[in-house]
Design a protein around this nucleic acid. Structure first.
Lengths: 100, 100
DNA sequence: AAAACATATCGATAAATCTCGATTTATAAA
DNA sequence: TTTATAAATCGAGATTTATCGATATGTTTT
């Protein structure tokens, strides 16, 4: 776990929002047409639409968050779904509580 | 409390270290010649020496951390002492634990 | 009042981040 | 096998951050 990398990932309004939206996808995104669930998270397209930023920017943001370990991608056909990595988030919070 | 501002302040190795050193000044810094205690924290000079960075950079870093609310300055004569703002740090951790 | 010292601010350059549109890659549909 | 769609990567300009030396400000000592 790289705390600085995580803090950087969390130093942006949009990325914080994305992480928050992913806590309850059913409340924040329309249902996926192919899958009937959010088990693997939400596709890039929906996240892009909700933020209003460009596809490349969102892809980049998700990549940053993934490298920091905050989210995990799963590929289903041509879609990539991203979901929160609760284990990493928990470890991060525990670390901060101790070390900060 | 501005979470993004705080996260930015915590996105740098040196600044994280400073915040950590300030948890136990007696273990990390020499005693102040004028005061016999660390009640108001540590002077800029000592922090500068411990990091090896320039005076202006350290002053700038401390200013960033202060604006984020993480530390508090106290002036004693020509020295400025900085100490942790435990209340803000606690609020920040509580916020993260809930909202992240 | 002048000199010395600690800190803050200014100005500048290099590096990193933000954001976009264009292109490429991977997969699915026709 | 061509076409369409989703996502990733590339290249670039604008903005922000890192870092320094020089200068300014405030305080103390001489």
């Amino acid at each position: 776990m790289n705390v600085i990398e995580i803090n950087k990932a969390l130093s942006n309004e949009t990325r914080l929002k994305i992480l928050n939206w992913l806590k309850s996808p059913e409340e924040n995104f329309p249902p996926h047409k192919d899958l009937g669930h959010f088990n693997d998270g939400v596709c890039v397209q929906y996240i892009k639409e909700k933020t209003g930023l460009s596809q490349s920017t969102i892809s980049h943001f998700l990549s940053l968050m993934q490298k920091a370990g905050l989210i995990t991608p799963t590929r289903h056909g041509k879609w990539t779904y991203y979901k929160r990595n609760e284990q990493m988030i928990k470890s991060y919070l525990q670390y901060l509580s101790k070390e900060l």
